[in-house]
């Protein structure tokens, strides 16, 4: 009984360690393969369109409502001690430093990470990845590197859009609905929010882009067992990348704070 449970724990730990090692190798090999020609510009632009342009609506909607509701809630808190003019600075700081990167990362993960896992998983179980290899084409270079690169570029762009729209709806709710003074709102925001806050947030979102695309591709690339395998790979990819984004966010915040950025 005890031996069995110890064995089970051991096996689980072994699985985790092996999985982490395999993921790290996969990531390094993919990034490395992308450094060498032939450069896949057509696939890259196609992926940038898929990751970036096609995520515009969900990011804009989430950004708009996040800014609006956060302004509302901040007003509730600040009105208890008469500091309503701080709403602008508070909401904008929270948006560019935390909410923009994390929420856009999670939303894009739901759309893009799952799609990458499903697409590569299907290619794996129908032997399309083997076919690439048999044609002397490195599938990591052909399939994975462009997807990761596209996400590293496009997720920060989407985050910037999220930040902008959130800041605008927050301004609109505060000054038009909650009747906060426009001048004070703008002045406080300008005073307290710095470019470094924005840069730190965008840096984080680039890391989230790396995470969601590489984790999605990883689970798809190693999918096995037909349609069911692809389905479970997709679910695992979204959950793992979502959790990883939140954990990594905490440590990134700790590490970039001393640099004076973010």
């Amino acid at each position: 009984m005890i031996v069995q449970s110890v064995e089970a724990v051991g096996r689980a730990v072994r699985e985790v360690v092996l999985g982490a090692g395999r993921y790290a190798l996969f990531l390094v090999r993919s990034l490395f393969s992308g450094l060498f020609p032939p450069y896949r510009f057509r696939i890259l632009t196609k992926q940038m369109y898929f990751v970036g342009v096609q995520s515009l609506s969900i990011v804009m909607i989430t950004g708009a409502f996040t800014g609006a509701v956060f302004a509302y809630q901040s007003n509730y808190a600040f009105s208890k001690f008469g500091a309503e003019t701080m709403i602008g600075a508070t909401v904008t700081l929270a948006l560019v430093r935390e909410l923009g990167p994390v929420l856009s990362g999670l939303m894009v993960n739901g759309r893009v990470g799952s799609a990458m896992a499903a697409e590569l998983g299907t290619m794996r179980v129908t032997e399309q990845i083997d076919a690439l290899e048999s044609m002397a084409i490195n599938p990591l270079q052909y399939l994975v590197a462009p997807r990761i690169l596209a996400s590293i570029v496009m997720v920060p762009a989407l985050t910037a859009l999220f930040d902008t729209i959130g800041a605008f709806t927050s301004y609109w709710v505060s000054t038009r609905v909650l009747q906060v003074s426009t001048g004070a709102y703008v002045a406080r925001t300008q005073w307290y929010v710095d470019v470094d806050d924005l840069v730190g947030g965008l840096f984080k979102s680039a890391v989230f882009g790396l995470i969601l695309s590489s984790v999605g591709c990883y689970y798809g690339y190693y999918a096995r067992g037909g349609a069911e395998g692809v389905g479970s790979a997709t679910t695992k990819a979204v959950v793992a990348a979502g959790v990883a984004i939140l954990i990594v966010d905490y440590f990134l915040t700790l590490f970039i704070a001393p640099l004076g950025v973010g």
Binding site: T122, T126, E127, Q128, D130, A131, E133, S134, M135
Partner: peptide, 19 residues
């Protein structure tokens, strides 16, 4: 190995066409 592989053609069980 890759150069040598490029001299092979492979027909897969379910064709493995890029869909």
């Amino acid at each position: 190995r890759r150069d040598l592989r490029a001299r092979f053609g492979m027909v897969f069980q379910n064709a493995a066409l890029f869909d």
